Simulated assay, not measured.
Amino acid sequence: MQIAKLEVPRCLVGEGPVWDVGSGLLFWIDILGRKVHKLDPVTGLTRTWEVPGIIGSMALRESGGAIVALANGVYALDFDSGACTLIASSPDLDDQVQLADGKVDRRGRFIVGSSDRSMKDARGKLYVLEPGASQLRVIDEGITLSNGPCWSPDNATFYHADSIRNEIYAYDYDIETAAVSNRRPFAGTAELGGIPDGATVDTLGGVWSAICEGGKLVRFLADGSIDRIIDMPVRLPGSVMFGGAGLDRLFVPSLDPSFMGRANDPLDGATFVIDGLGFTGLPEPRFAG
């Protein structure tokens, strides 16, 4: 196994990596930097789009461009012009609640959570955005800091973390309706030294979670037990996503603690790639809208 730092722009809060199988490109976001980054690993060239607010997550669209979850709604990002246009929102989003991490399920819907801005109260919710809809539909609530949505390979289980509670939950998932049920604790991270942040699932059903503040990545088995721990060269890994031609490379953006008033190290805010893990990921779907 080898961990390498990518020669790409550093982030304040690097999160939300998305590997696009069709183009062979890596996308990720800088939440507080209000940016979407793109890397072509073949040429090493990068491109950056600035967005008009704090960005919680992004996904590529089948029709081109991307959708981005800004604080007050989901916007369409035009890659040619850089314009952001609001396409869906919710009356729940206000000066106390903002959109956070999100991903596309295998029917092309965008599942996105919201978080309490103070990170103290469980005001957040989980929403689904159906293609063509202008309103976000609530599918769960009582969340403080939403993170790490992902699905088992058979689509039957949905994973989602409430980071402030140091808990990853599992749900039964109805892929036909995007309904979630039977929320239950899947894995706790307090003893791992940090909070569960971004996550993904491999082809064998293992759940990979970035343990922010804990300086590590953890692979959980489907029963919630720990299978593997990878120590990272930074304390604040933000998320994980399999990519590369064989979907066997793990991309890991990170956070720079200076935004919290803390001293940073030279690697903080960098994006890393891990090779030689022996696991492969699943193609990331595009939003069908």
Rank of each mutant, 00 (worst) to 15 (best):
W151Y: 14
A288W: 14
S23T: 14
K120R: 09
G205C: 05
A133I: 01
D202H: 07
V207R: 01
R109G: 07
G244H: 10
I139C: 14
D101G: 00
I143R: 10
I3E: 02
L25E: 12
T144K: 08
G205R: 02
I226N: 02
M1E: 01
P283Y: 15
G246T: 02
R109P: 05
W19P: 00
T157R: 13
V273N: 04
L267A: 10
A170L: 06
L12W: 13
Y75Q: 09
T46D: 05
R47V: 03
W151L: 13
M241E: 15
L32H: 03
L192V: 08
I29S: 05
S63Y: 03
R137F: 10
N155V: 13
R228Y: 07
Q96A: 12
A199G: 00
E167P: 00
Y159P: 00
P131G: 06
A71F: 06
A170N: 01
G82D: 01
A161G: 02
D140L: 10
L6P: 02
D92K: 12
D105V: 12
I175Y: 03
N72D: 15
R34L: 03
A170V: 02
P185M: 11
R262Y: 14
K38I: 08
G73S: 05
E50G: 05
G193A: 06
G148L: 05
A245K: 09
V74Q: 12
L145C: 09
R228G: 01
G14L: 13
P257F: 15
V21N: 04
N155I: 11
F287R: 07
S254P: 01
D80K: 11
V273T: 00
